[in-house]
Design a protein around this nucleic acid. Structure first.
Length: 560
DNA sequence: AGTCGATGCTCCC
DNA sequence: TGGGAGCCCTCGAC
């Protein structure tokens, strides 16, 4: 009996067989066959479904006539390409490849299922503890800053229910969000195509998208502190723009590719951006490690560009300290976050380098006192420095959290709650899914960065996509999320109910072409609620969200 | 329901 | 340092 004939535990498809007596002369193949057999034994023991396929082709190149080609269907792990196990979704639960390090904490020896960081997110985190250096900066902190940070933590208010949304607001994935500084209902959103959305979520059906400002990824935007009708934006097309929100008219303040496309080695993209209101400066950083300053009064570049990160690497984040705007925090792909003094900016003049193990997606000073730093790195760790006046050699805390890099997703950024006086609440989307009543959902996490504890995980059975872009409202208990091409507004449950009393929850489906309901004004669509969970496990889904009419909308006409 | 492809980015050699 | 291989929980179209 040949080896192939004995293989009975999985389906076999013989495409062509010339002669049963012909055997492959290739020794290596013989060995492989043996390996396969032992794997088969495991499969029988496991008694699992056979999925995947492996084509075994006997070369028989030295023989005349046709070679036998046997394709056997058996399970192959798509991660490590070995047999005997399989990674992937089994229903709503993702099974990791046991041959790889933990997908969550990146350590070997276990998978995410029993990773201690998944069981308890605060695992291994040292609760609030400030390293005292007893130097003069510590003294300054005690005198000037400490009283701004209350020692008693207020109760966190979590916006945990979808209040309104526009499905497919953008034609490409959302890259950034920004709330209007004075108008509570205006949300700005940028997308991968460079389009800028202006959404008044008080009037859900009204949708404005400016498509002619940038030609690719809108990476960051900020409102002008001098004029809240004006917004600055940095894009991968190499331009930094200043746009009037009323008219949509845009002025390019900087174009780093004035000669157009000259090849990938010279094409400059703008990523990190922030404003220094005191000095009237826009700070932007590019993909070659340089920082550029633009004077908003003269609309011209100020000084020379300065290399602030390793030459040739992206600088993805810039943040001016809210308390001392001359302090600048940058982060980038050279695995560093850096603190700078804008008054003394030159290459290698940074006050402090904060090393990370991998690329740093974001680095922010705390929003009120500016004395803390939170960074998000693609090594699946949120790092916290409790005081920029203290010892910055090592972070005060490292919180393991799933926010891996994926080329199809906007990079995750942990964002402060600007309303939290204790400066300890942070919001960040989660990459890996969890099984919630038979649905694989990717929640949005609220984390207390002083303890590493998961304060809340916010999800909706209808949002099955990953939500990497999140922004908390500067004044209201509102969370804005960008998930794929859609925008969501969350409010706390009780408040949501109050709002609904006078105006029902509003979910609008955009994109005429892809929606069978056709019209933005059409209120009958259930595209949102009909979305399936992972692996089509939609049976146990609670249909809590439906497309409801906007009662205040005057445009109530049905298409015949 | 299952497959496929668009593709940017990281990191290793 | 440059080039290129490879990429584990995408997402949406067909």
């Amino acid at each position: 009996m040949s080896a192939r004939a004995r293989r009975t535990s999985f389906p076999e498809v013989v495409i062509e067989r010339d002669s049963d007596t012909e055997k492959s002369s290739d020794d290596e193949e013989e060995v492989e066959d043996d390996v396969v057999e032992s794997d088969d034994q495991e499969e029988e023991d496991d008694n699992e479904e056979q999925k995947g396929k492996e084509a075994e082709v006997s070369s028989a190149a030295n023989k005349k006539g046709k070679a036998p080609i046997t394709i056997s269907l058996k399970k192959v792990c798509k991660v490590c390409k070995r047999t005997g196990h399989q990674a992937g979704f089994q229903g709503p639960t993702y099974i990791d490849c046991p041959m790889k390090p933990c997908f969550l904490c990146k350590l070997p020896g276990h998978t995410t299922v029993n990773c201690p960081h998944r069981v308890a997110m605060e695992f291994g985190v040292i609760p609030a503890y400030r390293k005292r250096t007893n130097n003069s900066l510590d003294y300054v902190f005690e005198r000037q800053v400490r009283h701004r940070v209350p020692s008693i933590k207020p109760e966190f208010v979590i916006p945990d229910e979808v209040n309104c949304a526009v499905i497919r607001y953008h034609s490409r994935r959302v890259t950034c969000l920004e709330f209007h500084p004075t108008n509570n209902n205006i949300l700005l959103s940028g997308d991968k195509k460079g389009q800028l959305g202006v959404w008044d979520f008080g009037k859900v059906h009204e949708k404005t998208v400016y498509g002619n400002i940038h030609s690719c990824l809108l990476n960051n935007m900020k409102f002008s502190p001098a004029n809240d009708g004006t917004v600055y934006a940095a894009s991968s097309d190499g331009t930094m723009s200043c746009t009037d929100l009323e008219t949509g008219l845009s002025t390019p303040l900087m174009d780093l590719n004035p000669n157009g496309w000259q090849g990938p080695n010279s094409w400059t993209m703008l990523y990190g951006m922030d404003l220094n209101a005191e000095k009237g400066l826009v700070l932007v950083a590019d993909n070659f490690g340089f920082l550029h300053l633009v004077d908003t009064r003269s609309n011209s570049q100020k000084g020379n560009s300065i290399l602030i990160h390793k030459k040739g690497t992206k600088v993805v984040g810039l943040h001016c300290n809210p308390f001392q705007p001359d302090l600048l925090l940058s982060c980038g792909n050279d695995h560093f976050a850096r603190i700078w003094d804008i008054r003394r900016l030159e290459a290698e003049s940074c006050l402090q380098s904060l090393p990370h193990k991998r690329v740093v997606n974001s680095a922010y000073f705390s929003p009120i006192s500016g004395s803390k730093i939170v960074t998000t790195s693609i090594d699946n760790r949120i790092r916290v420095w409790d005081s920029i006046f203290g010892n910055l050699e090592t972070p005060s805390r490292e919180i393991v959290h799933s926010h891996d890099f994926n080329r199809h997703l906007t990079p995750f950024r942990a964002e402060w709650d600007p309303k939290d006086p204790s400066e300890s609440l942070v919001v960040v989307g989660r990459y890996i899914s969890e099984n919630y009543n038979g649905l694989a959902l990717h929640p949005i996490d609220f984390i207390d960065i002083s303890t590493g504890q998961l304060v809340a995980e916010v999800m909706d059975p209808n949002i099955t996509t990953i939500t990497p872009v999140n922004k908390l409202h500067p004044r209201d208990d509102v969370l804005a999320s960008g998930s794929s091409r859609s925008l969501f507004i969350w409010r706390p449950k009780e408040k949501s109910e109050m709002v609904q009393e006078k105006d029902e929850r509003k979910i609008v489906v955009c994109d005429r072409k892809n929606s069978k309901f056709g019209d933005d004004d059409d209120d009958s669509g259930d595209d949102f609620s009909s979305k399936k969970g992972k692996n089509g496990k939609s049976k146990s889904k609670k249909p809590i969200l439906v497309t409801t009419p906007c009662s205040s909308s005057k445009k109530k006409k049905k298409k015949s």
